[in-house]
């Protein structure tokens, strides 16, 4: 069968997942915008709440997408229906990863970009921006950990373990990063300071994201049973 027909099926699978996640995605996005508005208008009083809400929305959208489109599909026994279509395990993996990454990636990217509005005012010093980038990428990395775990491992238990580990792990990780000299010494400055520490940490996070996605494709290609 030609590559075009193969792409048609993959596109249909992506559309199907986006359609299933459409309403929850809009809700998460609105939640994220709401938390940014909270920070802008009630920054002094509700800054911490707004920040927690914002991170929760980003994290929650990733967990929801991975659980709904991967774990739930398997638990609800929809997979035999999907795999009866003219696709291979590789096609399924491409479709699932693309749908998830584009959906959560869009929410993450737009909300992350919108969140920098708070720096226009004097709510937070500009020196926080590089650290904010690390936090946002750490949340996305946590989502990638959850997505790739649900893709590779069957069952609810690995998914739950991944959620708990990603949640606790990312918090511990951010605390650890915050204590690095390169971060600690610049985070409260009025101007943005990009130093080697920030670049190294962001680079490692990016490499981890790419590595986990690559590992997922490799693990999926090694599977000899897929139901």
């Amino acid at each position: 069968m030609s590559t075009d027909t193969n792409r048609t099926v993959i596109r249909a699978l992506i559309r199907k997942d986006l359609q299933i996640m459409k309403i929850p995605a809009i809700c998460y996005w609105l939640g994220g915008i709401g938390s940014i508005l909270l920070a802008i208008f009630f920054g002094d009083a509700a800054g911490t709440i707004a920040f927690i809400l914002f991170i929760s929305v980003l994290f929650g959208s990733g967990v929801h997408a991975a659980m709904q489109t991967v774990t739930e599909e398997r638990r609800e026994q929809n997979l035999p229906f999907i795999m009866s279509l003219p696709i291979t395990i590789a096609d399924y993996t491409v479709a699932k990863m693309t749908a998830n990454l584009s959906l959560v990636g869009t929410i993450w990217l737009t909300l992350s970009a919108a969140s920098f509005i708070i720096f226009i005012g004097d709510v937070m010093p500009n020196g926080t921006i590089p650290f904010m980038c690390i936090i946002l990428l750490a949340v996305f990395l946590a989502y990638i950990v959850i997505l790739t775990t649900t893709m590779v491992f069957k069952g609810l238990a690995p998914a739950i373990i991944a959620v708990v580990a990603a949640n606790l792990g990312s918090q511990a990780y951010v605390w650890w990063v915050a204590d690095l000299h390169g971060v600690r010494s610049t985070v409260n400055s009025l101007d943005i300071v990009w130093n080697a520490t920030y670049f190294s940490v962001l680079g490692i996070q990016l490499a981890a994201i790419i590595g986990l996605i690559g590992l997922t494709f490799y693990a999926q290609s090694r599977k000899t049973e897929f139901l």
Partner: peptide
């Protein structure tokens, strides 16, 4: 699989 229709007991 373009030419196969598959239904199993555990398919939903």
């Amino acid at each position: 699989k373009w030419d196969i229709g598959f239904v199993s007991e555990d398919m939903r």
